[in-house]
Structures are given as structure tokens and as C-alpha cells.
Design a protein around this nucleic acid. Structure first.
Lengths: 203, 203
DNA sequence: TTCCGTAGTCTACGGCGTAGACTGCTCTAC
DNA sequence: GTAGAGCAGTCTACGCCGTAGACTACGGAA
């Protein structure tokens, strides 16, 4: 017997969890903290989620739900771009929860829906059927990775730190000194997407 | 006063930590577990690392150290490819620790060295100086993301699960039914790299 | 001989996820 | 009208966790 879960207060609980993570970071997201915010004892949560992992999966589902666009009928570039920018926006809105999207496996209906929209856009772009899933993985991997890198500091912290140590053996860094950090990450993301579109359909 | 750390047994401690993570997962990597493996009380570790976070940073440094290649004098494609494949190999060798590379900010000398080699390869490829750092970020983001996706199950689990639910509203999935999962991830990675090389220098 | 630095120990605190047993309430069926 | 089922939530407790703080034992140097 698998013990049926209640669903009534799941959204409320996920909202509380998301709020805690947004305000105090993923580390602070404990069952006890969520329970307190909901106004309930920790053990009450286990009527709605089998354990903490399932609560986190629920959180991933919730984020993906925010994401799926509903305006069809544009060009494939616009539709693909819309998904990409939405993902990046999501990362910036919920930086501490965002890594879960890449780290957890959970497959939600909204996630599948999103992939399906991407597939359709690629088909419309004229990508051969046999290549569509690969190209989707290529692009989505980049987009998720980019958003994660921004949010986790991989981009900015690295360059900042490097500038402090110049003079050791990193000849190329020295040569590129003026160009290491972009002034505009939005523009970089846009340029990257444009480059990827050229993979999808060479101009 | 910042409390100077001992370095003598750091490598030994990091080895123990890596072994635990490889054998029992990142969750099992606790100060207590590492201490036990080293044959010491938990508090003894704090002479070598200020806290658990610093130990994890040390682990990232250790991994990057395994990575930096030492065979120069090939074409820029070969050098870039060597780095990419080495990263992917690292992910497969240490799947549970690998996510730390993307999640933690720690900037190590070996990491910088690696970026410098990539910069040099891009310069040799004829990429304009102003574009080199962006292209490096594009490619490294993809490579890290791909390796992470493989290792965290984002790729395989997703496709497996989708096949079970066919018939709902995912038209593109249905049309692509035969192509959803590649039989050979090595080949997919190679194809992706080839596509990215075409961004770097159009053929 | 005294002193100091090094390496490590012991104890304890507050927090964590969650198993197991329990209470009180509401609704149905007789 | 009352017995019983089932739902919602509580209480207690266990074994983990990271780490602060105070301590011991020892091997040189002065």
C-alpha cells in the first residue's frame, strides 16, 4: 500500500517553500521552515508530500508551470527565443531554486509541453526529423547552462577574480584584457542565441 | 586574525572525500564520514579546511587539476576538442561530484589555465579578440551543461518517461517517435561539438 | 627547564529529515 | 442518536548533521 497523498494544500505549501528559498536561499529550505510558514507542524507536510525530495520535485513542477508560453503563431525563431528568454527570466526571478531544474530529474507535464513546443519550432525551421531531438538538447542545454552560470556566479566571479591575478602564466587572458567581461549580459545572451539559430538553419 | 591552515594532509583528506562521494553519493559526504575515513575525529579536519564549504572548494580544485591537458602543438580544433572531451570524461568518472563544478564559484589556478588554453585556441581559429571570451563562455557552458545533463539524468530519464505517456497533447513528440533517444551519446556529443566549431569558424 | 607551536581530542549545541503513535473532528450509515 | 470510518494534524523521539570552545599530548627551541 502506497499511502495516498492529499493535494488540497499542495500549492500553498509549494508557495511557502518557494518564498523561503527566494528570501533565504536553498539551504534554509527545510521541512521545519516550510511547516512554520504554513502554520503547521513539520509532520503535517508528510500528508502532502512523501518526503522532502518530492516536495522539491513539486517545486520544479511549479516553476515549469510559470514558464510555458501561450502565444502561438509567430515565426519559429520567435517561439524558440521566447522559451529561451523565459527560462533565463525564471532563473533571475528564482536564483536559488533554479539549479534544481538542472539537477533533478523530475519530468513534469509542463516540462514535456515545453520540449514539444521546441520540437515543433525546429520542425518548422526545416530541421530534419532525425536531428530535431539532438538540436533541442543542444539548445536547451546551452540555455539552462547559461542561466545557471549567471545565477551561480560562474561567469562574473571568474572574470573578476582573474583580473586580480594577472601577470602569471595566462598569456591569452593578458592579450584579451579589455574584453574579458561584457557590459551587457542580455546582449551576450542574444548574440549566443543568434549564433545557435545559425546552427539550426544556416543563413 | 584569520587562523592559518595546515596543508600537509589536505590531499589525503580530499582523496577521502572524493572516494566517499564516488562510492556513496554527494549526500553521504559529511565531515564525520570524511574524518572517519581519514582515521581522525571530525574536528581535526578543521585544521585543514575552515569549514565544509572550503573542503568542497578544495574538491573542485582537485578535479580541475586532473583535467588540464599537457599536449600542445595541435590544431585549434584538436585542442578545444581535447578540453571538451576531458570535461565529459571527468563527469563520467565522478558523477556525483561533478555538479559542484557548475554550482560553486571557486576560481582555481587550474580552472583559469584551462580557460586560457581555450582562449588561445579561439584566437588561433581567427575569432576576433572582442568575441573570444563570449565564444569561450558559449562553448564551455554547453560542454559543462551537456556533461551535467548526462550525469544527472536530465537527458535519458526525460525521454524514457515521455515514451510512457504518449497519446496526450504532444504532437511533435509523436511525430518524432523513432528519433527521441540517440543510441550513442558519444556521437551526439561529437556532432554537437562539430556544430559549435562551425559557429567558431564557418566552413 | 620552560615555553610555545602543532596535531588532535572531547563535549556539547542547535538544527535537520522523518518514523510511529496518537488526538480530535466531521461525515456517513444504521 | 449513535457507532464507526477516515481525514487533518500533533507530539515525541531517533540518529544524523556542521561546528564552537575548551582541552591534552608532544616535540622541539630558548
Amino acid at each position: 500500500m502506497v499511502r495516498k497523498l492529499k493535494t488540497s494544500r499542495q500549492p500553498e505549501i509549494l508557495d511557502a517553500a518557494l518564498a523561503i528559498a527566494d528570501e533565504r536561499g536553498l539551504e534554509a529550505l527545510s521541512m521545519r521552515a516550510v511547516a512554520e510558514r504554513v502554520g503547521v507542524t513539520p509532520m503535517a507536510l508528510y500528508g502532502y508530500f512523501r518526503n522532502k525530495d518530492e516536495l522539491l520535485d513539486g517545486l520544479v513542477g511549479r516553476l515549469l508551470g510559470e514558464l510555458v508560453p501561450d502565444d502561438p503563431g509567430q515565426t519559429w525563431q520567435e517561439r524558440l527565443g521566447a522559451i529561451a528568454w523565459a527560462i533565463r527570466r525564471l532563473a533571475r526571478a528564482h536564483p536559488s531554486v533554479f539549479p534544481l531544474l538542472l539537477l533533478r530529474t523530475s519530468v513534469t507535464p509542463d516540462g514535456v509541453k515545453l520540449v514539444d513546443l521546441a520540437y515543433q519550432a525546429l520542425l518548422d525551421a526545416g530541421v530534419p526529423e532525425a536531428d530535431v531531438p539532438r538540436i533541442e538538447r543542444l539548445v536547451s542545454t546551452f540555455v539552462l547552462g547559461f542561466a545557471l552560470s549567471e545565477v551561480s556566479g560562474r561567469f562574473s566571479d571568474a572574470s573578476r577574480d582573474v583580473r586580480r591575478r594577472r601577470g602569471t602564466d595566462m598569456p591569452a587572458h593578458q592579450r584579451l584584457a579589455g574584453h574579458l567581461t561584457p557590459d551587457d549580459w542580455d546582449a551576450e545572451f542574444a548574440d549566443d542565441l543568434a549564433d545557435l539559430m545559425r546552427i539550426i538553419r544556416p543563413v
